[in-house]
Design a protein around this nucleic acid. Sequence first.
DNA 1: ATTAATATTTAGTTTAGTCTAAAAAAAATA
DNA 2: TATTTTTTTTAGACTAAACTAAATATTAAT
Lengths: 219, 219
Amino acid sequence: MLSFVEENYLKAIYHLSLNGKQEVSTNALAEEMRTTPASVSDMIKKLSQKSVVSYKKYQGVNISEDGRRLALHVIRKHRLWEVFLVEKLNFTWDQVHEVAEQLEHIKSPLLIQRLDEFLGHPKYDPHGDPIPDEHGNLIEKHRQPLDALSIGDQGVMTAVDDSSSSFLKYLDKMEIGIGSNIKVIDFIEFDGSMDIKVDDDKTLTVSSTVAQNILVAID
Amino acid sequence: MLSFVEENYLKAIYHLSLNGKQEVSTNALAEEMRTTPASVSDMIKKLSQKSVVSYKKYQGVNISEDGRRLALHVIRKHRLWEVFLVEKLNFTWDQVHEVAEQLEHIKSPLLIQRLDEFLGHPKYDPHGDPIPDEHGNLIEKHRQPLDALSIGDQGVMTAVDDSSSSFLKYLDKMEIGIGSNIKVIDFIEFDGSMDIKVDDDKTLTVSSTVAQNILVAID
DNA sequence: ATTAATATTTAGTTTAGTCTAAAAAAAATA
DNA sequence: TATTTTTTTTAGACTAAACTAAATATTAAT
């Protein structure tokens, strides 16, 4: 049985291993958890002991299959409570997160089963994120490199394939990042470059190489 | 701000100071909390530091006005969640306690305000215990053995005085339980037995002994 | 290929809550 | 009243989760 704190670490590891590589670095986790790398190092050993992550010194952590299942169970509870707060208690979407962060740690299988029924087995939370089922299965949004999209398609950037600092610097300069909404405006056959609109705001052109290395999630 | 553990100690102190004297002894509290007197001694100092109890060495604790208010706030949350679990999620009365023990520690004034509205501002929990209002005011019900009532009186069964399994089996068979509404229809002077109506539904006769061991709360 | 910079781990403390064993105070009893 | 018994507190240790400072490993840069 994991403690509240351990559950929160596991959730963070799960999220980071989706957005970036599978390997999650100590520093990234420390930043996500708003704590120090030293604390993370300690916690990683505990989680490794409990077989929810695998870990080699200085090599970052990988979430295990057990860990993934546990993380998704917590996420399921979080998202179900969010639905409850919005649909039944008239919370606005920006009021739900903090409370759901607390409610997600309540331990009672019956409670979650009944809550799910009460809410009519919702598939998505108020932010549009999918709710994992009781076995930890998640309808993952299809994730593709940007250059696989066609004109008119859009998606949310969730990761990069190339994580060289030069590429990341380029993205930074262009003000594209994880979470950016990207819509394909035009595709130039000649060199494979694309015109894209970012966050319904600025339009810019990216090379074929860049487009290959930006991963987007589409519905 | 009190921790979960501190809140639980405070609740226990509140309950013990109702049932017995205002003075709560270290040993009694240790038994209630299923811990050691030494741990209780330590905790009492912390609670005293935070002015929720007053305490003189070797003299036991007294809950303060602030402490009472805080304890009643936790009890309010506990009982509101119990109503939710029974009325909305179809829990039975014996399934709610453990889960409500967890839910009562969630910190969000908005959540409790909205939950209260959602449930229609209930005055009593599923066991018939009154729900304190948001200011920590409690409508204490007068609790009496059934045989003390007169014809026409009614109340909600809240407890039993005899908890032998033979008595509980009898109650089970008669379909009387915690939360049942009991109205006195007739009182037979000859042997002290009573005719009662349960939940405005079935009428039955109970012996004087039975009536002495059923406790009811009257408004 | 060294050196410099960055990332990660270890070592040593801290706080909350718990424990056992021992000491001290209060209550009960003779 | 003196003594025994019970209750309560203190002292010292333990675990979980955090921190700071120092040491070590890895990566980047010259």
